[in-house]
């Protein structure tokens, strides 16, 4: 049985980590909007924190992407 196809499916599954990152960033953004609407004068600080938090949440998706890249290198 050729293993290449299974490896490709595995690479596809690895990119499912994007779901977690999407939920995380969405949650951070919604809370940021809430925070700004409550306290518009703190918007500068909230923007910075949101950007940093989004980038941190994004890291999980990036790990999945890196795993997928490693796996695609193994397809015959």
């Amino acid at each position: 049985m050729p293993i290449g196809g299974l490896v490709a499916i595995g690479a596809g599954i690895a990119v499912f980590t994007g779901i977690g990152a999407g939920i995380g960033i969405g949650y951070a953004a919604s809370k940021a909007a809430e925070g700004v609407s409550r306290q518009p004068e703190a918007s500068g600080k909230i923007t910075t924190i949101t950007l940093v938090a989004s980038a941190l949440a994004e890291a999980t998706a990036i790990y999945g992407f890196v795993i997928a890249l490693i796996l695609t290198g193994k397809i015959g």
Partner: peptide
């Protein structure tokens, strides 16, 4: 995490 985050983001 530091190195893979930078690498993955820029490569993506």
């Amino acid at each position: 995490s530091l190195s893979l985050r930078l690498f993955g983001n820029i490569l993506a």
